[in-house]
Amino acid sequence: MHEMSLCEGVLQIIETEARNQDFDKVKRVILDVGVLSGVEIPALEFAFEVVMRGSIAENATLEINELEAQAWCMQCAETVTVKQRYDACPKCESYQLQISSGDEMRIKELEVD
């Protein structure tokens, strides 16, 4: 499950920022996760709880914002919303789409003490 390694990366970022910004407890973590990122939300929530045990984010709540995917259609030159990779353009039915967002995962916000 790659969600475990994603949470380990989140913890590394939290620990680095704790040293840089001098905080010792994380109360809330807000993540932006794109629908095309390949991240399974229930697995991420489970992995977060496991990975954060014994860390400065042990009792932190996790909030996940699921982001829509956007693509640029080369045929009609429009930015459109897509639900999955290889969808047709909802406006012109072309398959010549270039994904521009929705495949990312990032820490949006940390609430700390």
Results as ranks from 00 to 15, higher is better:
72 W>D: 06
97 L>C: 03
6 L>I: 15
105 M>K: 01
98 Q>V: 10
101 S>P: 02
23 F>E: 00
95 Y>L: 10
113 D>T: 07
56 I>C: 04
110 L>H: 02
19 R>V: 13
74 M>F: 07
50 V>Q: 09
57 A>E: 10
46 F>E: 05
34 G>D: 06
63 E>M: 11
68 E>N: 14
92 C>Q: 11
68 E>Q: 14
21 Q>C: 09
107 I>S: 04
98 Q>L: 10
31 L>F: 13
89 C>V: 10
99 I>P: 05
99 I>F: 10
108 K>N: 14
32 D>A: 07
53 R>G: 13
19 R>S: 12
42 P>M: 06
32 D>G: 08
16 T>N: 08
67 L>Q: 11
29 V>D: 05
112 V>R: 08
66 E>I: 15
63 E>L: 13
110 L>M: 11
51 V>H: 04
5 S>P: 00
29 V>E: 05
70 Q>S: 15
89 C>Y: 09
52 M>V: 01
73 C>H: 04
64 I>L: 12
64 I>F: 11
52 M>N: 05
2 H>Q: 07
64 I>C: 11
30 I>G: 07
24 D>I: 00
69 A>E: 12
55 S>T: 15
70 Q>W: 06
84 Q>E: 14
40 E>W: 03
13 I>K: 06
55 S>E: 08
77 A>Q: 12
91 K>E: 13
61 T>S: 15
61 T>C: 03
1 M>W: 01
66 E>V: 15
94 S>W: 13
72 W>M: 02
22 D>P: 05
103 D>R: 02
63 E>K: 15
39 V>T: 09
90 P>L: 00
15 E>A: 07
67 L>C: 14
51 V>I: 15
4 M>W: 09
86 Y>H: 12
81 T>S: 13
83 K>H: 03
74 M>R: 12
38 G>L: 05
100 S>T: 12
70 Q>L: 14
101 S>H: 06
17 E>T: 03
69 A>D: 12
112 V>W: 05
60 A>M: 03
48 F>G: 01
95 Y>M: 11
23 F>W: 05
107 I>Q: 02
99 I>V: 15
94 S>V: 13
31 L>I: 14
87 D>K: 04
1 M>R: 03
11 L>M: 15
111 E>A: 08
105 M>Y: 04
35 V>W: 05
97 L>H: 00
85 R>L: 14
39 V>I: 14
15 E>P: 02
75 Q>C: 10
2 H>A: 08
106 R>E: 08
28 R>F: 01
62 L>R: 08
103 D>M: 02
106 R>F: 12
66 E>F: 00
4 M>H: 09
11 L>C: 14
51 V>Y: 07
76 C>E: 09
90 P>M: 00
3 E>L: 06
40 E>Q: 09
104 E>P: 00
97 L>M: 07
42 P>D: 04
101 S>M: 07
105 M>R: 02
31 L>Q: 10
104 E>T: 07
113 D>L: 01
78 E>T: 01
16 T>W: 06
61 T>M: 10
7 C>L: 13
56 I>L: 15
102 G>M: 07
105 M>F: 12
37 S>L: 10
11 L>H: 12
1 M>G: 01
95 Y>C: 04
23 F>A: 00
51 V>D: 10
113 D>V: 03
96 Q>D: 15
16 T>G: 02
5 S>I: 05
